[in-house]
Structures are given as C-alpha cells and as structure tokens.
Nucleic acid binder design. Structure first.
Lengths: 358, 358
DNA sequence: GAGGTGCGCTGAACCGGTCAAGTACGTATG
DNA sequence: CATACGTACTTGACCGGTTCAGCGCACCTC
C-alpha cells in the first residue's frame, strides 16, 4: 500500500534475490554476466528477472559506477534556423541508432550562446548527467575546448581537425569537397563563381573558404565569398545583393541546404532562370534539395553515418581506449537540375534575358 | 591521488559540510531552501557551495527522491522524414526552453515502430530514466496509451483530444483550421479542391479529413482526400496523380511543409504555373514554406509555444496537480504567393495552358 | 522553578545498485 | 588426515544525496 494506487510496482534486484533465494550480490553478478555464480543459478536469476520485467535503476547504477550512461549534445544555434537544418536531425538520428543499441541515452540541449553552452557543460559535468559530449560548430580558439579539457569531461569534436587540438575530432576534408564543386561548375564554363558561406568563425567555414579561394585562384576564376549566419534572411539578402550586381556571378555555391533553397527562391523571384541564368549548388544534401524545382545539385554526404561515427568515437574516448582523430567519408557532388552550362555569349543575362522571352 | 590525473574534482555536499563545520543534513536543508537552518548558516553554506562550484549529483538525488528530473520524447517516424519536418525541431526547441529553466533534461529517442516505442517506455520507466513523456502522433485505439496507463508513467498526448481518453492531452481544433483553409480557397473561386493528408491512422489526420469533407460538402465543392505516409515520395506520387487526372483539382491543401514543398516542385516540373494553374496550401508553416518560390500560403502556428505548453502541462501532470486537457491556440491561414483566384473560364489549364504561352 | 515549545542542528537510515572481502563447502593434494 | 585450493556464494561498505527522529538549548509561561 506504500505504492501508488496506479502504476506497476518497480522491481529491484532485492525482489529478484528474494525470489531466487540468494543475496543481492549474487543477483548483481548474474545479471551483469560476471563470474561468481553457477550457470544454474545464473539462468534461474535471469529467468526471474525476465519474468518480473526488471530493468536496472539507472540512478542507482550511476551512483555506484560513476557512469550516467548518457551522452550529451548542445546546439548553439537559433531554434528557427536549427529546425530548418535537416543536417542536425539526420545527425541525431545516426547518433541515436548507435546509442539505443547499448541503451545509452542522448540528452539534447538548445542554447542561445557559446557561453550558455559552456555553462551547460559545467552543469552536466557537476551533475554527472552525461559521460561525454559531442561538440559541433568548432571555432578557432574555441573556449569550449579549454573548458572541457579543464573539466575532464570526455568530448569529441564534430568537424575539424584543429591544429594543436586538445580534444579528439571526427572530421573530413571540407576543402577537397569545395574544390570538387568549383571544378565542376568551372567545367560547365562558369568563370564568375560566388560562395555564400556560413558563420565565418566556424572552423569548417574557414576550411571551405580556403579551399574555395585556392581553387578559384588556381583556375583563374573570379571567386567571391560572403559570410552569413546560416539564417534564411541572411541567405536571401546576400543572394539578392549578388544578383543585383552589375556583373552577377553565374554560379553560386551555398554552405547549407537552407541557404541554397532560399537562394533558389530569391533567384526565381528576381526573374533569373535556374539553371539557365544562374547555377546553384547546395551543401549537406537533404530531401529538401531534391523536392524543390529544379532539384538542387548538391554536396551529398551520409550524415546519418557521420553521426554514427562520431558517437562511436565518443564512446571509445569515454572508455579511454583512444584519443585519436578519425577521418570520415567526405562529401561528393551530386549533379541535378540546378546547374547547367554557362552562357557562352556575353549577351544579356538575368532578368533581362527573361524579359526578352516573355 | 584517487582522483583522475586530469579533470576537476567533483564536489559533494560532504565537502561543503566539512568546510562549513556542519552536518550533511544541514547542508541539504540549506541548499534546498527548506527550513531547518538559520539564515546565517544558510548563507554561509550557499556561499561555500557557490565557491566550490557544487552541482547536485543527479543520480544520488534521483535515487532518494525517485525523480529523474528528465522528460522523454520518442519519435516513431523515419529519420529521413523527421529531418525534413521542421515541426519537430521547433517543437523540441519549445520544450527545451521550458525545461532548461528548471534544469530538467530532455531525452530523445528515435524508433522504427510503435512497438519499439512501447518498449522504450517500458525501459525508461523501469530504469527511472524519465519522470514523464510526451506522446505524439496519436492513433485511434492507441496501444501506447494503454501501456502508459498500465505502467503509471505520467504522459501528455500532443494532439487530440481523444474520446474516452485515459491520458491528458494538449490539443487544438484541427478541423476548424482546415475549414478555414477550404473557405479561403473556395472564396478564390476554386471548386475542385484536393487534400493530401498524412498518415490515416493518426487522430489529427482523421480530424482534419472530417473537417475537410464536411466543409466541402457544405459548400457544394468537389473535395478529394488522399493519404500519404508524410514522405516526400508519397507526396510527389499523389500530386503527380492528382495533376495527371482528366480534371485535376485547382487547389491542393497539404498536411505538412514537406508535402507542400514537394507538391510545389512536382507541379512546377509538370509545367503547372503556381498559383495560376494550381493553388497550393501548406501546413505547419515553417521557414521552408517561405523561402521557396512562390512562397507558400500555409497554416501558421506557433509551434515553439505549442512545445512550451505541452511540456509545462506534462510537468503539472508529473506533479500530480492536474489531469485535464489543455486547448492551445489554433493555427491560422497565412496567405502568400502560392494561392490565387481560380480561372473563371473553363478553358485549358495545366501544362497545356503553359504550352500555349511559350 | 518546573514544564512546555520551537529553533537549529546532528546522526543515521535509506534509495538500488556495485564490488571487495570474507565464508562455507567440496575436492584435490601431500 | 590435515592442508590447500577453487567455486559459489554472502556480507556489508559505498556512491551522494534526502529525510526523519531525536537532542540540546534558549525562551516563554504559569
């Protein structure tokens, strides 16, 4: 009667011990597959545990083994933008799939700023809420890295690698990917190529920009980079500005899905035909790139696999088995309808060309 | 030396007690703002706690008060689709914002099926991982409800209400919203209106369909409903079929953002001008509806607020303070560029009309 | 001045696991 | 037959909080 009126009674190892006529310790050994009990007793205990529907009380286990059996992910981007970045949901899906098999939980927190993010790490560490965290959107001289190292909270950086890195990273060659994209549009005859980048402070943005500038220089192209904050508004604004220039680019490479789709919308609204007047390349190819018209040529990557790799690596780091970096499969360009050959003539382009038709 | 070489030493209430020269009990009272200590002592203890950077060990607290200080959300939709439904990320953002203020964690799990979802509830309950859960995508005779009631795990249904509901729900009038949308396109002169719905088994789908059919009947319109699984492919397939009919609808109302954007892409690809040949209405208006061209007329709702309401209600239910349903603000139609007047003539429409122009 | 009251604190049990140390017992060994 | 040893357990401390009973003491009351 001490139990609440409704609800199943939660069964503990003491219940199992009583039922099996052994001690708590024996039950613990049996359930954890450790030596110390006979095969007979073990099977009997396992049978009773199954019958009673026992699950280990995570709090109790956490208290004695100092393990939360949970990993954390903090995202410091505006909610509205996050919702539109299919990247994170797919990434989370990958992380989940690897975690749920070991019944480790994923705890997620959205914050406004990097300072808040650090505060969450402090709290999670102090509360023993998580055994480790994945860190996204790395910056140069990132204060989060210092804090995580100071705390001693296991962490894996998603995206990198960083010079003099104090934390292990899961990374892929961002520069090589952008080079592939530029070569592709260059091969289509485009010479004025713009890149609408993400947040300048992010390491992966810098790496992409570096790759972009070096390959455009190498190919003797007119390469231009503008940074955004990943928001749709900033993407729209930058695209509008680019296309309003006296000599607009004939190809634009965007740093995300949302930016690319936004850019496509702005171009169409301004009367540019895609890909006839302007070619568009997206990044982190998701369904959204494929369902718009025309479907976007995009840099495709198996983000789910990326999430799996990242979390597996974090689990290794938590176990103390490695502190190395891991390189993952890099993205590849998937050509679709939003890219086409550059106009060979130097004739009118953009809204004027369309006005000429209608 | 018992501590790991790197990493901060985690401080416990015993440390604070020793420093303050009082017992653990006194520290506990002081830190929890409960009577039992003088104001002087309380302040001294709080000062020491702040100085040492103390955070409560969640496992220890959970063990004694039987509170996990965590809520759960299980999503049983394919990851690829989920990633594209801005709804969930926005919803989660809302949930988070309400939780983080009380430093309650949100644990998320993606599963494949409703059976897996039930298994997760069993495990979470047995492990005392969560204090309660939010249940989305309710079905008629939903087995999850029975199981949650059986377990006695506090839960709030997101979407509803249900007849004979055994669990409290947070809901809004889905039927009224679809009626508003139909009246709007009807006022524009459309008489053949299709609805591309979500999963038929979901209660909110049924409610919308009911509202749709009743209002089209009332207005004497030709109303057609086709169900999908929310996937882009199914949305594309249905749209293609609708628009290939001898007498295609002149307006389509979609049940989600992704479906609507996909439908827009298919229509454009088939040569239908939007909104001249076909009007399109989306649902759960997110940025993605706004950045495509033309921007979508859509049913707008403050999803972040919806998440906040849902989780606040769950916390009330966990506290045992209420088991009532809560009605939330319903969606409203936001007209944009994807809807326009129906052609008054019975002349050719669709691809032919466009062919006639070019 | 005896008894009552309430404040401020202590001590210890308790939550449900884990795990090191100890014990009982059967069997092998010298 | 005593000793050693391995197996199969038991016992009890421990993790870090919460909470309740109890205790000393100051103050009030009649």
């Amino acid at each position: 009667m001490a139990q609440p009126a409704r609800g199943a009674r939660r069964v503990t190892i003491s219940d199992i011990a009583a039922r099996a006529g052994v001690s708590k310790g024996a039950v613990s050994y049996a359930l954890n597959g450790r030596p110390g009990v006979s095969d007979n007793t073990r099977e009997r205990i396992l049978a009773i545990a199954g019958e009673l529907g026992w699950y280990p009380n995570r709090a109790a286990r956490a208290l004695s083994v100092e393990r939360a059996d949970a990993c954390g992910l903090v995202l410091a981007r505006p909610a509205k933008t996050l919702a539109l970045e299919p990247f994170f949901m797919e990434f989370i899906a990958g992380v989940e799939s690897a975690l749920s098999a070991r019944s480790i939980a994923l705890t997620i927190q959205l914050v406004e700023s990097i300072e808040d993010e650090i505060e969450v790490y402090r709290r999670w560490f102090g509360e023993r809420r998580v055994d480790g965290v994945l860190v996204a959107d790395l910056r140069e001289h990132d204060p989060r890295v210092d804090e995580l190292v100071r705390l001693g909270l296991p962490a894996v950086i998603v995206g990198g690698p960083v010079k003099n890195h104090a934390l292990p990273a899961v990374w892929h060659d961002e520069a090589a990917v952008v080079v592939e994209a530029v070569r592709y549009v260059a091969a289509l005859g485009h010479t004025r190529i713009a890149r609408v980048a993400g947040v300048a402070e992010f390491v992966h943005t810098a790496q992409r920009t570096e790759g972009f500038l070096s390959v455009t220089r190498e190919l003797g192209l007119d390469g231009d980079v503008t940074e955004t904050d990943y928001s749709a508004e900033s993407g729209a604004r930058v695209t509008r500005k680019l296309l309003s220039a006296p000599e607009p680019p004939s190809a634009i490479i965007y740093d995300s899905d949302l930016l690319a789709v936004t850019g496509l919308g702005v171009a169409q609204q301004m009367g540019f035909a895609v890909p006839d007047d302007i070619s568009i390349v997206g990044w982190d190819d998701s369904l959204i790139s494929q369902v718009v018209h025309p479907p976007l040529t995009a840099i495709t990557r198996d983000i789910v696999a990326y999430g799996i790799t990242a979390i597996r690596h974090l689990l290794e780091v938590i176990e103390g088995r490695t502190i190395a970096d891991v390189e993952t499969q890099r993205g590849e360009l998937t050509p679709r309808g939003s890219t086409g050959p550059a106009r060979t003539t130097n004739g009118p382009r953009g809204p004027r060309s369309r006005a000429a038709i209608t």
